[in-house]
Design a protein around this nucleic acid. Sequence first.
RNA 1: GCCCCCGUGGCGGAACUGGUAGACGCGCCUGACUCAAAAUCAGGUGGCCGCAAGGUCGUGCUGGUUCGAUUCCGGCCGGGGGCACCA
Length: 895
Amino acid sequence: MTAAEIPWPSPPGRKKDPILNRMKSERYNAREAEPRWQKIWDEREIFKTKNDDPRPKYYVLEMFPYPSGRIHMGHVRNYTMGDVVARYMRAKGHNVLHPMGWDAFGMPAENAAMANKVHPKAWTYENIATMKKQLKSMGLSLDWSREVATCDPSYYQHQQKMFLDFWKAGLVERKTSKVNWDPVDMTVLANEQVIDGRGWRSGAEVEQRELTQWFFKITNYSEELLSALDTLDRWPEKVRLMQKNWIGKSEGLLCRFMLAKPQGGHGEIEVFTTRHDTLFGASFVAISPDHPLAKSIAAQNPKATAFIEECKKMGTAQEAIDKAEKLGFDTGIRAQHPFDAKWELPVYIANFVLMEYGTGAIFGCPAHDQRDLDFARKYKLPVLPVVVPEGIDPKTFEIGTEAYDGEGRLANSRFLDGMTIEEAKEEVAKRLERETRGNRPVAQRQIQYRLRDWGISRQRYWGCPIPVIHCVKCGVVPVPDKDLPVVLPEDIEFERPGNPLDRHAAWKKVSCPKCSGAARRETDTMDTFVDSSWYFLRFTAPDAKTPTDAKAVNYWMPVDQYIGGVEHAILHLLYSRFFTRAMKATGHADLDEPFKGLFTQGMVVHETYETKDGTFVSPAEIRIEGMGDARTASLLSNGEPVSIGAIEKMSKSKRNTVDPDDILSTYGADTARWFMLSDSPPERDVIWTEEGVQGAHRFVQRLYRLTNEIAEIAAPENVSRPAEFGAEATAIRKTAHTALARVGEDIEKLRFNRCVAHIYEAANSLGSAVSKTGGAKPSAHLAYAFREAGDIMIRITEPMMPHLAETCWSALGHKNLVTEQAWPKLESSLLLEDEITLPVQINGKKRADVTVPRDANNADIEKAVLALDAVKKALEGKRPKKIIVVPQRIVNVVA
RNA sequence: GCCCCCGUGGCGGAACUGGUAGACGCGCCUGACUCAAAAUCAGGUGGCCGCAAGGUCGUGCUGGUUCGAUUCCGGCCGGGGGCACCA
């Protein structure tokens, strides 16, 4: 369709008498206008992005949704924000990539399959269709031609290929790990699916099981993932901190404690410590109940066995007993102090020592570690302070019930006495590194990370199959590239618990690619976090025959602005950072950090309503009367009173959700978008209120009316610029250009609430200017100013309310699309005032104003200030002690 | 327990690097239009004193630095988030 054929709406209300016209002017009908503009954008393919465009690129991405069924308000907020950025950057002359896809594998599809006997695939694709329609009705400027769904073989085949490449590169490992096993559903549960030690669905007590699982070796990149956080200066500090803590680097010492008497083949205990400075304060050694030495002791000692069993129970008994008492079992074994073989320390099995961290063994220094102190007090072990705060006499320094973990100087520590903690650590490390027992140094420096390898195995159907074959003869064999993808079988049944793939004999049965003998397929599928770890790369070339297209990746990556919920601060974002590096290592990409800018938006929250019997009811089911503290709610159905509860995240269980479809069909997409952007800063939670939505909707109508009024008096589109402007015209132009400057600036900083305020402010000011004309035909320069201001207003509104902006743009007489217009050129000279009014303070309190020329010097300003009545009065004829002039800001007279 | 963030009118929130506290919106009050209502338009709206001009207090509490503090520093109180026997 060419421009001439576009069915341009005739500008409404173009009649002779503007006053009469204003009264009659019809309302903006979003329901009619929005689909019409969407269709025009669609037909002209204006959001379709080319990979070979000479303009500078800009990649804006919102976290893609899980196709749960319908979009929710959180999506509306998230995608509106991204769309504002996308539309703005397009107007600023960038080639913008703004794609959308579906995080389409995952458990809800399997749960739905079990509950409703619908195939996960059918369920997922139906949801995608519904949600796509909903997203389209929001008027998002997305390039839908790049849409991907992670459950489609055309997507996951590449993931399988990369899994194999990672494997070749040594980034995949198969090892045993502890999992939460639901014995009834016969499946592995994620931590969040274990509630009070029981499976969330079956209610069965969850067991800890050792299973052989597939892992990605993310720990190979611990140090890099940590240090590169410093380069992510456009990420929220909070997220970087969370990742830093998650990686949990600590520098310490691996130190061997020789046993006085060897025990079942164990001649020593290796300990990891970060406080080797306190070694002379040691009073015991403790090992984990899972430590090999503990097992060897248990083999001969029933009491030890009983204690270890006790500890295991404690482990499953959940967080309530998290503050569990420190318990230990004295093994009777004695360990020698590394600096003094005659000094023997008791060895305990202790419930608070974790096998998964460090070496599974510690030495306890009660004076300087709270846990060790609690333990020592319980078992009456010595407590000797060895670090004493500066200025305190070591002889009088005593430890009561609180360990001292602050700064200080060493004491009671032989050759370390008087040193700082750092000096003592260095000295201890140096000496023990040199000392040897059995030809090995006693200690070595070690860097320890909390980060563990990423277990990607899931015993589930609806996920990406791990492309591996198990052969009795050849062991674990990769599926050859030519046999990819390993496609999920569709004929599966969910009647019985367990993994349907594991029960699918025909699918499982396969011949070994190496020896052609009988073999079986791996039935684990991948964690869905794998799917979302590279979709942003796939968007750059969604049809490439290989996982990525080098040229496209190099052109588009990194993502310039990524927007999503803070709940993904750690896992998704850390996995993606790892995956991008792994793809670099295997030649699928050429960068380290995928997301240059990250923004985490707040949630959408709403009041909750609860009936007397404690059931939650939805906002749609109630009526609210009164205001402020006197607000009351009652059920629409029977008038029964309902209590108004806390404001919480919208959730199905609290029934405090508002369906975007209802809002869209009542008020239109622009109202919803505008409300989502107003008031609350984007990183904070926004409270959804009916009043707020109505306020937003009022502005939609107001801007529409204002535009039509401006259209009446504005100069024609192409009239040439007058040489001079009067005061009124200049004021109008200042209003428009100030808004232009501020809105642009604030979009770039993602401060959408302020953009909204600027537009309100400008609309107020332009409204007054229009009223002042009283309907009379304005002079040429004033008419020009109105034309300019009207155009600017609508152009800067478009990123936020694109449909309304198109309607207004055509009302202003334009025959093209505002969406395709460049961002207006700022006349910055208009932002400068000729005269400025400075507040005048006397002793720090504002007492007057003084108006001076913009470029007045300090002496002139001082003179003007001293001439003010208020200042004269305050000084009572005396000279001021001091006058502080802050240029362009303020004057303070110190009397 | 450790780490981080946040406390501003009736409400959501503005206030750039220490420089007029309360922009903008919601709500409320008054007026215009209307038979009336809604919508719309005009005006007002932190507390206290005052007819007013104006004064005075005021950014969780409390000290401090400064000519000047919502902003910086110390202590306390309240709310939210992250991690959690991490050696």
